[in-house]
């Protein structure tokens, strides 16, 4: 996506909520390529609220991925392996 000129963009979107749903479908990888093309190429470049929403959605996803993933403690992993191996030996 290029950097659209804000002065030429719509400042209000009558379909904002529907657009947000479409945006999420696209970011979730669940939209068809036509939906994607239409929205990303035609709508987003000319609509300020949706353009902002797009960047917000992307930023939240990134933040979630960097801040909300914890690895399992190694001793727990080892413990589970040992328990299953003991199970196998029986």
């Amino acid at each position: 996506m290029s950097n659209p000129d804000p002065s030429k963009m719509k400042q209000d979107c009558p379909e904002k909520n529907e657009c947000l749903k479409m945006l999420q479908l696209i970011l979730d990888g669940e939209a068809t390529s036509e939906q994607k093309d239409h929205f990303l190429k035609n709508h987003l470049e000319e609509c300020m609220p949706c353009y902002k929403n797009y960047h917000l959605e992307v930023a939240i996803r990134q933040l979630l991925k960097t801040k909300c993933c914890q690895d399992a403690p190694q001793e727990l992993v080892d413990d589970i392996k040992t328990k299953v191996i003991n199970n196998l030996a029986r």
Partner: peptide, 14 residues
Amino acid sequence: FHGEFMPHINSMYN
């Protein structure tokens, strides 16, 4: 178990 289940242990813990 080791090849298909264990690789997901971090996601599962989370």
